[in-house]
Structure formats: C-alpha cells, structure tokens
C-alpha cells in the first residue's frame, strides 16, 4: 500500500513528477537565463479532434491501487478548457518511461491564443520527455496553457496507472 501511494505521488508530484523543469542556475540573474521572447514553434499544431463538452474533471486517484502495468500503452487525457481555448494530451508509456507526448485537441478562441499555445506546447512536450526527478512540490505563476497541458497529461497518466 505504501509503495503504491508513493508511486502515485511520484507520477503526479504537481508538475514536477512528469516535468523536468530547468532548475539549473536558478539564482543566476534572470537576464542571463532568459530566452528570446519569441520561441519558434518546433512542432506542428495538432489537429483538433471532437471533444466532449463539459467533461473536464479528472477522476480522483486514490492510493492503494496495484502497481502500474508494463509494456507500451497510451491514453488521452481529459480535454481541458483553459480560459482561452482547450486542449488534450496523449501520452505513450513504455514500461514506466514516457516515450511520446502529443497534443491531440488544441482549439483556441482567437489567433493570439493559438500563437501562444504553439509557442508554449512544444516546450512543454520537450520538458515532459526530458523528465527528471521531482524536486519541487508545486508551481506558482503557472500559465493557463501550461496548466491545461500538465493536467491533461496528468489525467492521461492517471488512466494508464489505474489500468
């Protein structure tokens, strides 16, 4: 039971369990670590599939479930409305490793939000695939886009871990 509880926390861990945020040199002056304002999109925008309206609450994950299964498998997370659009994330696992993360349901209300999402999402995908150990418990100042991405990813992982 205890072991399973830890597995769930590690898989969720705020964003940290799945995301390897760039923590290096965090006390260095921001001027030297900040990237150009325009991050070119590094991947194509996803084509929006039909999404179920309203279905937006992830199921509760309760500790005590059996250990995660092995093998290659994937799941699509909950479609999240994030204020300026909606998105869903599909995650593919091989064993316990995330091998692929795709945005499968990106719809935005306006071109500016689309532009923002296309800048943010490739970076998030990269960070997911570069997953590192959880060193922080949560995040403050999260952007809407990244929140939706993370929580859809989390709900996809929840589905896989509960099968």
């Amino acid at each position: 039971m205890k072991r399973a509880a830890i597995a769930v926390v590690a898989a969720v861990g705020g964003f940290a369990g799945v995301l390897g945020f760039n923590l290096g040199g965090s006390r260095a002056p921001l001027l030297h670590t900040s990237a150009p304002a325009s991050n070119p999109p590094s991947g194509p925008p996803a084509t929006p599939p039909p999404t179920s309206p309203g279905g937006s609450t992830t199921p509760t994950t309760t500790a005590g479930s059996s250990p995660p299964p092995t093998g290659v498998r994937s799941a699509v997370g909950t479609t999240y409305q994030y204020g300026y659009g909606q998105l869903a994330v599909r995650v593919t696992l091989d064993g316990t490793s995330i091998t692929r993360v795709d945005t499968v349901g990106l719809q935005t209300a306006d071109p500016y939000s689309q532009q923002l999402a296309q800048q943010v999402i490739p970076l998030l995908r990269h960070e997911v695939l570069a997953a590192q150990s959880a060193k922080v418990n949560g995040f403050s100042g999260a952007t809407y886009t990244s929140e939706a991405y993370i929580y859809s990813l989390q709900s996809a992982l929840d589905k896989l871990h509960k099968k």
């Binding site: 940290a16 945020f21 760039n22 923590l23 965090s26 006390r27 921001l30 670590t33 900040s34 990237a35 304002a37 991050n39 800048q119 943010v120 970076l123 998030l124 990269h126 960070e127 060193k135 922080v136 418990n137 949560g138 995040f139 403050s140 100042g141 999260a142 952007t143 886009t145 990244s146």
Partner: peptide, 21 residues
Amino acid sequence: TGGPWRIGVRHPWRPDALAAV
C-alpha cells in the same frame, strides 16, 4: 517526502524554466 514545501516560481518569459524555488 518531508521537509519544507518547495514551490517553483515560473520564469516570466520561459515556459520551460523556473525563476526560483
């Protein structure tokens, strides 16, 4: 995991980075 809560503050211009923990 014990110890204090460690909360990352998102970098204002980089979605993939933290400004501080």
